[in-house]
């Protein structure tokens, strides 16, 4: 179980140093204000893609820094969005006249941080477009939906579009299109490790929490169905229904561990999700299974389903070279 070194509000510096140590050819850690950028800066002029995020969601955001994806990531402390000054420093360092796209998950802190960074940049000649990520179907009101797996997808699409030399507005529009066509749902199988409180009220083994966020925001506690496969079927249906999918549309399915789920259980869940979607007549054109966006060491999954089109698939397939995604 996590919690030895990390808790909400704690410093993430040593962890970041470790990550950069693990990927010295890809990442460089700039201090005070903190941000992580490419070890070797790009030579060509292009739009920069930047994402700030609280920590505790590893490998997001730093694991997605590299050619074809993020130009810089600004990690805040655990579960705390970074300071606007970090975003400003990263923007000045990696963005040029072509401008920058901020990929911002829809949380009060993250949104305000990005707005404040833009205020601080003021009339500097760096155009910035903010792409708001709000894909969590657990929240009925789309305006209040939290950002989950679509942050990974939008960063990939924006990074590929920027790498292809597209101008700022097109890069941002494509990332927004990716977000609009993506839905996620988090289901937890144990409690979230939290702060001074240590571990929150443990979740009994016969219960799950439906619709959790990635900061321990509580979901709805439900009994675990006698046949746990029903849980995955229900997740698939929730995503399908919200996206109003029709058979034949090419889909991308990403299944992420919340951080504490054994691999065997992750692949078990993937099999049932995949089967359920196929049984609905839907075709999974691309898939990812692994650890992509987490809530410290929580047990459970975030399932992310996206409706793709020819251009989005092309951008998804474009080369990427980051610690987590590389092809």
């Amino acid at each position: 179980m996590s919690g030895v070194a990390l808790a909400p509000g704690r410093s993430i510096t040593a962890s970041l140093e470790g990550m950069v140590l693990a990927y010295p050819d890809l990442l460089q850690f700039h201090r005070d204000p903190d941000y992580v950028a490419w070890a070797v800066p790009p030579t060509e002029e292009k739009v920069a893609v930047i994402s700030g995020s609280g920590s505790g969601h590893e490998p997001l955001p730093v694991g997605y820094v590299g050619p074809g994806m993020l130009d810089a990531a600004c990690p805040g402390r655990v579960f705390t969005s970074p300071s606007p000054v970090q975003l400003v420093a990263a923007t000045r360092a990696v963005a040029q006249e072509a401008g920058a796209v901020y990929v911002v998950k829809n949380y009060a802190g993250g949104v305000m941080t990005a707005e404040m960074a833009l205020d601080l940049l003021g009339d500097e000649a760096i155009p910035v477009r903010t792409v708001l990520v709000n894909d969590d179907v657990a929240i009925p009101d789309p305006a209040r939906r939290r950002g989950l797996g679509a942050a990974v997808l939008a960063s990939k699409i924006a990074g590929a579009a920027a790498q292809a030399g597209l101008p700022l507005d097109q890069v941002a529009d494509l990332a927004e299109r990716m977000v609009q066509n993506t839905r996620s749902l988090g289901v937890a199988t144990d409690a979230c490790t939290l702060a001074r409180a240590g571990i929150r009220e443990p979740l009994p083994p016969d219960q799950v929490e439906w619709g959790v966020g990635i900061h321990g925001e509580p979901g709805q506690v439900r009994p675990l169905p006698k046949d746990p496969v029903l849980l995955l079927e229900e997740m698939a249906e929730a995503l399908r229904a919200d996206l109003e999918l029709r058979p034949g549309e090419p889909l991308l399915l990403m299944l992420s561990s919340l951080g504490g789920t054994p691999q065997a259980e992750l692949y078990w869940a993937f099999r049932h999700l995949h089967r359920t979607l196929q049984a609905m007549g839907l075709s999974i054109a691309r898939h990812l299974v692994g650890t992509f966006i987490t809530c410290l060491g929580r047990g459970g999954w975030i399932a992310t389903l996206a409706r793709m089109d020819g251009q989005l698939l092309e951008l998804w397939d474009a080369p990427v070279h980051t610690p987590v995604l590389h092809w």
């Binding site: 204000p33 969005s81 300071s83 606007p84 000054v85 009060a108 802190g109 941080t113 404040m116």
Partner: peptide
């Protein structure tokens, strides 16, 4: 405050 405080509190108290 803007430099040292993350989350929503930094931008809010900073503002």
């Amino acid at each position: 405050l803007i430099s040292a405080v993350g989350g929503a509190a930094g931008p809010l108290y900073g503002t």
